[in-house]
Each structure stands twice: as structure tokens, then as C-alpha cells.
Design a protein around this nucleic acid. Structure first.
Lengths: 373, 373
DNA sequence: CGCCGGTTTCGAAGCGCTTCGACTTTCGCC
DNA sequence: GGCGAAAGTCGAAGCGCTTCGAAACCGGCG
């Protein structure tokens, strides 16, 4: 442990300058052309492949490119070709959306975009419609991927007649004329109920996102609830759904209330990553073992489900897949190919240790005090 | 709950086209000039403020800008001015770095950059040095902010003689010639110990990041440990430090081992966001109450500390502040102003409910079975 | 031998903006 | 009343690239 507070303390501020680009080493396409003994346009065609170039010249040009370390100037290229080779990713950064999923998603978008030779400009939703307009009008990006779209999102009308293609993550109330991708949350909610029904549960509850998310009319929360409720009804299962805050005390209190009002409750669907841990911690305190007394199904990333104890049966939120799809769709739109308006990814339920067959008979453990029976 | 599975099912794929930009409405600076009855250069000067323009002309030009909805073309501007007004943000996306902090940080970077009229290009570290070189050489960005720098980061030498300024989050082993920002983790570790020392604790333990993070020689983990260990020594406090995995069972096991080897242990410093919840869940199971039997100090975002039960005394990781600082420093470098090589942000410890004075005397509760004494 | 079609390469005209130097006015002041 | 400086505006030359039309070159055919 040979380290000290920091290699350079803030009190002895050595200064480093290193201003902006030293123009010196800006290799241009003209340099390459000269070096290879060809015309500038020939170099361009070699690099873009838009016209046939003889193998010998191509090799010569490519050799020059390598030996000079040439990288095309992005601005010039964008100006001349009217393509920036950049897409915008608009992140929500609002409460309720859970962060790790966002990151996963962002990563997938960047990675996929790179595969299509595009870069990603990061925007936050708080720039609002104005930001979108700016970025689109300035030709800074060729297209836009938008996360966390609400049912009645102010940006939707704008997108519809914006001069650049876009792909939305999530469905607004009216997705016509747009391109939307999302996990099929309706079926996700349904899948949870079906799994529980198969285990014999007759009374289940959904703990969802914080109330504010529902109020904001966020599609995925409502759709999950619908899938949950309608499937329960179809199976003749008693079901209640309620929002769920994310701090421990609120979760514990909500659970206690739930168990009081619904003593028969034998299973929980938790659609809130941040609350999952709290739920698992609170249940034992209320005298319920998981999964012996209460089964728990979560809708969350695998990572979270696996880390929990017991490991959670879960429907994963396929953030990566959604990101990949979104970018692929956008690329197709950039190529003027037609794409489907809506893409719903099917949910996948993974069974782990937190669900079991429903307790038999009237099946109700005495709560506190005397353990066992 | 009027919703169904999705407004458009994947089986009835209506198609939407909406290809790339409809060139129609590209308003150029020439259009503005014509509309305002001035020269193109005058419009440019009004917009940039680089030369004095009479109030009357300025108003006229600005009116034209508004009424035509003019937005300067980013590519053209970048080409002519040799400034893209974009900075790159390179995210790690490695295990061990915790995600929510990353997001917070990214948000701060974007927001701050916008205040300086810059946009943010998002890169992932997995493009490696080649990606940095590409983005710098293509003049796509004016500068670079790099996260999660390791002690012996391969990208560091590259950055040092890259033609664009950069700011690193975290300190490599040799930060000379660079500009680095970070929380002062050494002092953070120290602050935790001092707080505990003040409460009379004599035996403490540090639960850190997963072992892999230490192996990777990540500076912040080592520095925290150093601050922890050295401060403990100075106070004559018995201290052990150990890595900590993030799943519940591993945490519980580590804690059990710790308590067995160090029965006197009365306080824990947890420097691992993901493990914090697990620690709090595991302690009661081991017969230790927080804070009566064991005090816990965390190094984590306030959000996590507040959500826990009991609310955690913590040193917050000032992600936002770090992001802001990083961008500010980068902007100053872009202006050719000198900046300090190292900036260490002082830690701030917030006392909450998870720490208390050390149990008195030999102070060791009997563990299981008979509660109280 | 000259011409044709195909292939390969070249030259030049922008893309929309910034910026430099120069020109025109306007003022202050001796 | 005239001169110089300051203030305001203009025109034109690029920035580095793409792309279009045409030139140059190649065989092979009539």
C-alpha cells in the first residue's frame, strides 16, 4: 500500500496546458492523393467504394492512407455528403426509470451504431423538443433514438414531421407514423401471472413503479399492469396492483398493508428493480418466507435477479436487444427502407429460486411469535 | 385500463418509411442574409459576436433568423471554424464500476457541456485507443473526457500526445502531463475511520470492491483502502480490509468470517454500492443490530444511503460534481488556459442513522437464541 | 486504322460556414 | 474644415470532402 493521497495534491498545482489541436499533423485527403500519385477524387472513391477503382491503384492509395495515418475530417465529410454518420441517443434521466437498464441500453446502442459505422451523440431529455429540433436542423445527426417515451409525449408530434428519421423506445398512445420498439410488457405481465397460476397461486399482487411513473402515463408501467390484471382475470385469480416506492420503509409498509388486506396472498410480481431488494428484505420481517409462503416474480435485468437471495424468478428486460433493434431499425430508415411501425420483443421468463407451488389448503402461517407449527 | 398488448402488433406490420432528411427546409445562412438584406458575413458576425454589429442590423438579422427558423449547419461550421463544439465522453462499461454513478456522471457531463454550448459524443471504452485516435483525428470532437482510468491505462500514453485536450476521471499511476479529477478517495477512507474513531470504535473493517477491481489496479479502490488503513493506524485502531463480492450469499459469508475472526469488530466501512444492501440484510441474520452492535459507514451516492434501512451514514461519491469539474476543466483547456494537473474533490461525510457510539466495555452481545441480556 | 463501349481516373464545382482584409461611414478633435 | 481612428459592413477565399461529368485509356471489331 505505497500510495498516498494523490500523486499530485491540489495544493501544489502543477499546470498543464495542452491547448486545442496542434494543427501540424492534420493529414488531408490531398496529402494522401499526392503521396499516392492520384487525384483527390480517386482517394475518395477508394475509401467510399462508390466507383470501381483498379486493384493496383486501390492498394497504392490504401498504403498511403496507412502510412500517413489519414482519418477523414468528419465535418468536411458531413458537409459534402450530407451525412454526419452520427445518431442521437436521447436519454430520459427522470426518476422512475432505472439506471442500470439505461446504461445497458446505451451501451448496446453505441456498440450497434459502431457496427454501422456511426457514432452516438448523447442528449438528455431535459433539453426538450427544442434540443431535438436543434440537433436535427443542424444536421449534426442523421437520426434519433429516443428512450422512455410517454403516452402523450410532447416530442412525438415534433418527431413525426421532423426532417430526420427516428426510433422510439416505448410506445406513445398513438404510434402511427412512427417507429417504436419495446419489450412486450403486456405479455411480460401476463407471463408472470401464468407462471404463478401454473404453480397454483390464487391470490397475487403486483408491485409496480413508483406512483409518479404511473401518473406520468408511462406506457410500460400501464401495459404491464394490464397484462397482469387481464391474465389474472382470465385465470380467475384474485389480483391487486399497486404502485411501489423504492425506500425500505415504504416498501415494508406497503407489504404489511397488502398482507393484512389480502391474507390469502401467496405471490408477488415486482416490476421495480430498485424495490426488489427491499421486498426480499421486508418479507422475512413480516414472517413470510420466500418462496415457501410467498412466491416472488420480478421484472428486471437478469443481473439483479441473480444477485438477490433467493435468486429471483424473473422476466428480464432485454435492454441490449432493444438497443440493437432500435439502431438497426434506424439504419434501415436511413437507407430509405420501409420498417414496421411497431416492434414488440417477446418476454422470456427464467425460473429461479423465488417461486414455488402455492401453500396448500387454507395455507396461512401464523405470523409472529411461535415459529413453525 | 383500456390498453391491449400494443397499439400495433408485430403481426400486422404497417410500414412507415420516413427516410432521411427532406432537403426542402434546409435554411442556410445565405437565406438569412438575403432575408435581412445583409451580407453572409454580417449574419455570421451577429451570431458569433466576434465583431461589432450595429444594434439595428443585429435586430434585423436576429428577426430573420427566428422567422426562418435558421440553425447553423454543424458540419459546415466545424469545417470552417475548426471547432466541432462537441466533446467525447468515454464510458468504461466494465464490471465493478457501478452503473448508477456512471449515469449520474454522464448526465452531469452532458448538462455542463450544454452550458458551454457543446454536445457530447458517447464512446465506450471497448473501442480502445484506436477509437480515441479516430475520433480525435477526424476532428469530430474538440476534447475528450475519459472515465474509469486505471493505474496503468493503455490509453494514457496516447492521450498525452494526442492532438486534442482531455480530462481524466481518476488518476493513473503517473498523471504528469495530464489533467485528472476525482473524489479524494484517500481522504474519503480516512474520513470514515475518523468518524468511527470519534464514536469510540476500536476495531473496524473495510469491505471494498470485488477482488477483480483491485486486481485491475483501479486507483480509487486502492486509495480508499490506503486512507482507511493509514488513518486507522494513526488512531491506533485495529483495521482489516478485504474485497467484497456483490451477491448476497458471498457477502453474508464474508461477514460471518469477519465477525468470527474479529469478535471485537464494532464498525464497518462499505465501499461498494451494490453490496451495501446485502450487508444491511446480512447483519441482522448474524445477530448484529445496526447501529447498536455494529456501525456502518458507506461510500456511495446519497440516493443509495437514504434508501437503505437504517439510513446510512455515508461519504457520497460526488458524481455530478466530478462531471461538472471535468467539463469545466476541459473547456478551459480548449481556451488554452492553464489548468491544474490534479483536482481532488474533498469528501463530505453525512451522518445518518447507521452509526452510533461503540458498544461499551467488552461489549459483545451473545449472538443467537436468547435475545437481550 | 479508326471507332466503339467499357473501364478507370481526373478536374472542378460545390456543401454552408468562418474569417481576413478592405472598403465605407461616422465621429471626435485639432 | 479636414484628418485619423473607430465602427460597421462587405466580398472572397478557403475549410476538407463528395460527386458529377468528362477525359483518358484499353482492347477488339468492322
Amino acid at each position: 500500500m505505497s500510495e498516498s493521497s494523490g500523486p499530485t495534491s491540489p495544493r501544489t498545482p502543477r499546470q498543464s496546458t495542452g491547448g486545442p489541436a496542434k494543427r501540424a499533423d492534420m493529414v488531408t485527403i490531398a496529402d494522401v492523393a499526392r503521396h499516392a500519385g492520384v487525384a483527390v477524387s480517386t482517394v475518395s472513391y477508394v475509401l467510399s467504394g462508390k466507383r470501381a477503382i483498379s486493384a493496383s491503384t486501390r492498394e497504392r492509395v490504401l498504403a498511403s492512407v496507412r502510412s500517413l495515418g489519414y482519418h477523414p475530417n468528419a465535418g468536411a465529410r458531413a458537409l459534402a455528403s450530407r451525412r454526419a454518420n452520427v445518431i442521437a441517443l436521447v436519454l430520459p434521466l427522470r426518476s422512475g426509470m432505472h439506471l442500470p437498464v439505461l446504461m445497458q441500453f446505451a451501451t448496446a446502442v453505441v456498440t450497434t451504431a459502431r457496427q454501422f459505422d456511426h457514432d452516438v451523440l448523447l442528449m438528455t431529455a431535459d433539453e426538450g423538443p427544442g434540443g431535438l429540433r436543434r440537433i436535427a436542423a443542424s444536421a449534426m445527426v442523421d437520426g434519433i433514438v429516443l428512450m422512455d417515451v410517454e403516452m402523450h409525449d410532447v416530442r412525438v408530434p415534433l418527431l413525426r414531421d421532423l426532417e430526420r428519421p427516428s426510433v422510439l423506445i416505448g410506445f406513445p398512445a398513438d404510434p402511427s407514423g412512427l417507429t417504436c420498439v419495446d419489450l412486450d410488457f403486456y405479455r411480460a405481465g401476463a407471463a408472470c401471472v401464468e407462471h404463478l397460476a401454473g404453480l397454483g397461486h390464487r391470490t397475487v399482487a403486483l408491485l409496480g413503479a413508483p406512483a409518479v411513473v404511473y401518473d406520468r402515463n408511462t406506457g410500460f408501467a400501464h401495459r404491464t399492469r394490464a397484462g397482469f390484471a387481464e391474465t389474472a382475470q382470465r385465470h380467475g385469480i384474485a389480483a391487486v396492483a399497486q404502485p411501489c416506492e423504492e425506500n425500505f420503509d415504504a416498501v415494508a409498509q406497503e407489504l404489511a398493508g397488502l398482507l393484512e388486506r389480502q391474507p390469502e396472498l401467496s405471490a408477488l410480481v415486482v416490476h421495480n428493480e430498485a424495490a426488489v431488494g427491499q421486498v426480499l428484505a421486508a418479507l422475512p420481517a413480516l414472517g413470510r418466507r420466500v418462496p415457501e409462503d410467498v412466491s416472488v416474480v420480478a421484472i428486471c435485468p437478469d443481473e439483479v435477479a441473480e444477485r438477490a437471495s433467493p435468486a429471483l424468478t424473473s422476466v428480464l428486460v432485454p435492454a441490449e436487444e432493444v438497443g440493437r433493434q432500435a439502431v438497426s431499425l434506424l439504419m434501415r430508415k436511413l437507407e430509405e427502407e420501409p420498417v414496421p411501425e411497431g416492434t414488440l420483443l417477446p418476454p422470456r421468463l427464467t425460473v429461479r429460486a423465488s417461486t414455488a407451488v402455492a401453500p396448500v389448503g387454507p395455507a396461512r402461517r401464523v405470523r409472529t411469535g411461535s415459529p413453525a407449527g
